[in-house]
Each structure stands twice: as structure tokens, then as C-alpha cells.
């Protein structure tokens, strides 16, 4: 059996520097092997100890499970402690990561686009070249997520029909007019008595 693939970790902001160097009289003249910090480990440290998130919320921000996040975090603490104690350099590089890019919206051609080159700011719409662009609120709404108007809850007693809300079982809703339990329209128990 093949193991589960390693999920790419989401990085919200890359580190401002490439690494850290120690200084002091004892360190001159002997360049020790640097400690390699992965991008995901830097991000774990940032979320947990700088933004003061708990492991649960930080794991959601990185798109990994809570136990995986805890393992990444344990590894970064171990590495930083080693760098401090042994007087080594720290280099931030590598890891299976992707940099999350935000969505932009162009009001001239009403398209959405992202900016994977995080270092360069976007000035014009990549499609029509217009400057009427702005940050989009959240992700572009999927056409498939629009509520299906044929998906209805029905009251078996009075026949009242309501739009079904995804994630809310019809059997747990009551009819607003006669307080009977609702049923899903089209299922065997939904017919009028």
C-alpha cells in the first residue's frame, strides 16, 4: 500500500530574511554547518508564537491536520534550540509549500485573477489591461455552489415547500405554519396523507 501523499503546506507570508547568523569571539574562524529551517517550520513558528494561535487554528491556516502541525512545530523548536546551543547559523529554505495568493477582481471586464508572483504588485488586469482592479472579498463564488431551486423541503401535513438548506437535515426542521416535521421533497415519506 502506498502511503498518503504529503500535503503541500500553505504559507501566508514568507520570511523577510534568508537566515540568521550568530556572533561572538568563540565563533570566529570556524564556520559550522548551518541549521536548515524549512519554510513550513518558519510558518508554524510564526503562527504559533508570533500570532499566538493555538495548534488547532494554526493547522487550519496551513491546511494540514492538527497532529501534523504539532510535529512541524516540535521540529522547529528542536532545530532552533540546536542552533542556539551549538552557535550555528539558521537558513530558511525548502519544504513542500505553496504561497497562498489572494484573489483580485477587475471591475472593467468582471474577471477574477490571482497573483502568484508575490514579490511584484499587480497594477493592471491581466485580461483587459484595465487599472480598475481591487482585492476581491474571499474566493470567487463557484457557479456550482448556487442553491438548487429544485431541492426543496416539504411539510407532509400541509404541503408547504421551503428551499432546502444544505447541511440542515429536513427531518430536524419543523413546518413554520403547522409545526410538523419537514421531509425532503421526492422521498417516499414526503407524500400528503
Amino acid at each position: 500500500m502506498s502511503p498518503n501523499l504529503k500535503r503541500p503546506r500553505k504559507i501566508l507570508s514568507p520570511p523577510p530574511v534568508k537566515g540568521f547568523k550568530p556572533y561572538g569571539p568563540d565563533l570566529d574562524g570556524k564556520p559550522a554547518e548551518p541549521v536548515m529551517l524549512l519554510f513550513e517550520e518558519y510558518e508554524a513558528l510564526r503562527l504559533c508564537d508570533y500570532d499566538m494561535l493555538n495548534h488547532h487554528h494554526a493547522s487550519q491556516a496551513m491546511g494540514v491536520s492538527r497532529p501534523t502541525f504539532t510535529r512541524i512545530y516540535a521540529s522547529v523548536r528542536q532545530k532552533i534550540a540546536r542552533a542556539f546551543v551549538e552557535g550555528r547559523q539558521i537558513t530558511v529554505e525548502g519544504g513542500k509549500v505553496y504561497f497562498d495568493s489572494g484573489w483580485y477582481h477587475c471591475s472593467s471586464c468582471s474577471c477574477y485573477f490571482n497573483n502568484p508572483e508575490m514579490q511584484q504588485a499587480v497594477t493592471a488586469c491581466p485580461l483587459c489591461g484595465s487599472n480598475a482592479i481591487g482585492k476581491a472579498e474571499g474566493e470567487p463564488v463557484s457557479a456550482f455552489e448556487v442553491a438548487d431551486t429544485n431541492d426543496l423541503c416539504i411539510c407532509p401535513a400541509c404541503g408547504l415547500e421551503l428551499l432546502h438548506q444544505p447541511g440542515q437535515p429536513c427531518g430536524q426542521q419543523t413546518c413554520p405554519s403547522c409545526h410538523t416535521r419537514m421531509r425532503r421533497k421526492g422521498t417516499p415519506g414526503c407524500r400528503m396523507p
Binding site: P8, V97, Y98, F99, D100, S101, C109, S110, C111, Y112, F113, N114, N115, P116, E117, P126, L127, P140, A143
Partner: peptide, 12 residues
Amino acid sequence: DSMKIQLIVLRK
């Protein structure tokens, strides 16, 4: 994102 390819979503 990791391949640095830009996505353009057009809903028109």
C-alpha cells in the same frame, strides 16, 4: 500557485 501560474476566472 506553487508553479507560479496565474489563474483568471471569467464568469461572463
